[in-house]
C-alpha cells in the first residue's frame, strides 16, 4: 500500500512542479548573489564595519544558508501541496469510500499516507540539499562560513561546516514532517485539497508571525508554537552548538507530529465517509 501511495504521488505532474520550484528558488538566489551579492553582504556586515573582512566571504556555504531560510515558508507550501491532498484528494475524486472497502484499517490508511508524504518531504529536502549546496559550492566555492545573528557574529571554519549541514538538513526533514502531519490532519476534515493546503499555510504564516515578531505579548506562547522550533536547524550554525535547545525543539516537533497524526487517526476513524 505504501508503494501504491508513492505511485499516486509521483505519477502526478504537480509533484514535479515542487522540485522545479525548489530549483527555481535556489537558482534565483544564487544568480542574484552572483551579480549583487556584495551589496547584500555590505548591508549584513554593517554591524562589523570596524573590521576588514577579507577572503571568500560570499561562498557556497553562506549562499546555501540563505537558501535554507526558505524552509520556513516556501518549502512547507510544497509539502502541504501533496500532504494536504492525501485524504481530501481521495474524497474529492470519490475514491475514498472505495479505498475503505478494502480490508485495511483506517489508522493504517492514515499512517501509510503520512509515511508517503514524509517520503516526498525527504525527497524535497534531499533535492534542496543537492541544488542548494552543490550548485552553490560550484558557483561560489568553499570558505569559512559567517552566520550573522541579531546580536552575534559567528564564524565557522570551512572544515567544520559540512557536518553542520548534514545535521541541519536532518532537522529540516523533521520540521517538514511536522508540516506534513498538520496537512494530513487538516486533510481529514476536507473534501477537496485546497482547504488543507491553504489551512496549513495560513496556520504556518500566522504562527511564524507570532514566533518572529518579537513582541513581548507573544513571549508566553512562543515556546509552544511549532514554528518557533522549525528553525532549530539554525542552531547547528552557532558556536557553541546549543544541543539542549535543539534537542528540546526536536522533542517538541516530534510531540506535534504525534499529536497531529494521533488526532488525524482519531477523527478519521470516527468520520462518516460520504464521498
Amino acid at each position: 500500500m505504501f508503494r501504491l501511495e508513492l505511485y499516486k504521488i509521483f505519477r502526478r505532474p504537480r509533484t514535479y512542479i515542487s522540485f522545479g520550484i525548489i530549483l527555481a528558488i535556489a537558482l534565483l538566489i544564487q544568480v542574484a548573489m552572483l551579480f549583487d551579492g556584495q551589496t547584500f553582504l555590505g548591508f549584513m556586515l554593517q554591524g562589523v564595519e570596524q573590521f576588514d573582512i577579507q577572503g571568500n566571504v560570499l561562498n557556497g556555504y553562506l549562499i546555501t544558508y540563505i537558501i535554507l531560510q526558505t524552509l520556513l515558508i516556501h518549502i512547507p507550501l510544497l509539502v502541504a501541496l501533496v500532504a494536504g491532498d492525501a485524504i481530501a484528494g481521495e474524497a474529492n475524486m470519490g475514491t475514498l469510500r472505495l479505498l475503505l472497502t478494502k480490508p485495511i484499517s483506517r489508522p493504517r490508511i492514515i499512517l501509510v499516507k503520512f509515511a508517503a508524504s514524509v517520503f516526498y518531504s525527504l525527497c524535497l529536502i534531499i533535492w534542496l540539499a543537492i541544488v542548494g549546496l552543490t550548485i552553490s559550492l560550484m558557483l561560489f566555492g568553499k570558505g569559512d562560513m559567517i552566520n550573522l545573528k541579531s546580536d552575534a557574529f559567528v564564524m565557522i571554519l570551512k572544515d567544520d561546516v559540512m557536518w553542520r549541514y548534514t545535521a541541519a538538513f536532518g532537522f529540516a526533514a523533521l520540521a517538514m514532517t511536522t508540516v506534513a502531519a498538520l496537512s494530513i490532519l487538516l486533510s481529514v476534515f476536507a473534501d477537496n485539497s485546497i482547504g488543507p493546503i491553504m489551512g496549513t499555510m495560513g496556520i504556518i504564516v500566522v504562527l511564524t508571525i507570532f514566533s518572529t515578531l518579537g513582541l513581548p505579548i507573544f513571549d508566553n506562547i512562543k515556546p509552544y508554537l511549532f514554528t518557533t522550533h522549525m528553525i532549530g536547524w539554525k542552531g547547528f550554525f552557532d558556536d557553541p552548538v546549543p544541543y539542549t535547545a535543539i534537542g528540546r525543539s526536536a522533542g517538541i516537533l516530534a510531540g506535534y507530529i504525534v499529536l497531529f497524526i494521533g488526532s488525524a487517526i482519531y477523527f478519521f476513524s470516527k468520520k462518516d465517509i460520504q464521498s
Binding site: F51, D52, V57, K158
Partner: peptide, 9 residues
C-alpha cells in the same frame, strides 16, 4: 582560502 578578519587599516 579562509576568511581573514582584522581591525580596519
Amino acid at each position: 582560502g579562509g576568511i581573514a578578519i582584522l581591525p580596519k587599516k
